[in-house]
């Protein structure tokens, strides 16, 4: 496979890989590095790539595993900064800022979810995957995906409502 051909193949899903990596690793730079690593790995075995019937699913699984490994090694190596116990006291009065704030909040809230729920929520609500696809990617049953997704959505909702009320009350 030639370089241009390869780029055409990865074009539709490389942003998805990046977004999944960013969801898991949080940092933009790390997500970029991870995505690059995954794509290079894919490139290095591009001769075999024609054999895979679904390159996208394969790449997503690679990304997931890579990021989880990365997180595991990082957790073992250094302390993680935890921002969850930090509350933003200055709730802005301007609605515009408030909306942008709420979007940031959701990102922060999603950071606090367990890895699996993070991935399920990302794959479903951002990338719009079907349950069966998510189940295959994450090696779970469809019903487990549903439960995990429902839990993640409810957590996000509850925390968001909490934040909103915090500003008012």
């Amino acid at each position: 496979m030639q370089q241009t051909e390869f780029l055409d193949v990865i074009l539709p899903f490389k942003d998805k890989l990046y977004r999944l990596a960013k969801r898991l690793l949080v940092s933009k730079e790390e997500a970029e590095d991870a995505t690059q690593e995954i794509l290079m790995k894919l490139w290095s075995k591009n001769k075999k790539m024609n054999g895979y019937n679904n390159v996208e699913a394969y790449a997503m699984i690679m990304t997931k595993n890579f990021c989880l490994d990365r997180l595991k090694s990082k957790q073992a190596a250094n302390l993680r900064l935890v921002h969850t116990n930090y509350k933003d006291e200055n709730v802005s009065l301007q609605t515009q800022v408030e909306v942008r704030d709420s979007l940031c909040w959701i990102e922060k809230i999603m950071e606090t979810l367990p890895e699996q729920q993070k991935m399920v929520l990302q794959l479903r609500d951002v990338e719009h995957y079907e349950y069966a696809e998510i189940a295959e990617l994450l090696d779970m049953s469809s019903s487990a995906v549903r439960v995990s997704l429902s839990r993640a959505r409810k957590t996000v909702r509850d925390k968001l409502v909490q934040k909103h009320n915090y500003g008012i009350q």
Binding site: D15, E32, L103
Partner: peptide, 16 residues
């Protein structure tokens, strides 16, 4: 904000 965020999050691109 929840639904808006999901739409915004999909806009992120890998530019490296």
């Amino acid at each position: 904000p929840m639904f808006q965020y999901f739409s915004v999050a999909k806009e992120e691109r890998f530019v490296k």
